[in-house]
Computed example of a mutant assay.
Amino acid sequence: MGWSYRKSMKFGPFRLNLSRRGMGHSWGNRLFRVTRGADGRRTVSVNLPGGFHWRKTRSTR
C-alpha cells in the first residue's frame, strides 16, 4: 500500500480539497452538494432525511 495525502480547507459553503493527485473543490451543504474532483469528474449529490440519497457523476469525456 502506498502513501497518500489529503487536506481539506473550508470557507463557508465552499471547500477546497488538496491531494496527491491535485486540487478539487466543492460547494453546498448537507442536503445538496456539487463537487469537482482533481481528475475533473463532476458529482452532484442530494441527501434527504431518513437515509435517502441520489448521486450523479459525469466524467470529463
Rank of each mutant, 00 (worst) to 15 (best):
F14T: 04
H53V: 00
F14P: 01
G51Q: 01
G24Q: 03
V34I: 15
N47V: 07
G40E: 08
W3Q: 15
W3N: 15
L16M: 13
T60E: 05
G2C: 12
W27K: 08
G50C: 10
A38G: 12
R36G: 02
T43R: 03
W27T: 07
R36I: 02
F52L: 09
G24L: 00
S8D: 14
R36S: 01
F14I: 09
K10P: 08
S19T: 15
G24I: 03
P49G: 02
W27H: 10
W3F: 15
R61T: 11
G12E: 02
R20G: 13
H53W: 03
S19I: 10
W27I: 08
S45C: 08
R36P: 00
F11C: 08
L18H: 08
F32I: 09
V44R: 04
R21I: 14
T57C: 03
R30P: 05
M9F: 04
T35R: 03
T35L: 05
R58H: 11
R42K: 13
S19R: 12
R30F: 00
L31W: 01
T35N: 05
R6M: 13
K56S: 08
S26M: 06
P13Y: 12
S59H: 09
G37S: 15
T60M: 07
N29L: 02
R30Y: 03
R36M: 07
K7A: 14
R20Y: 11
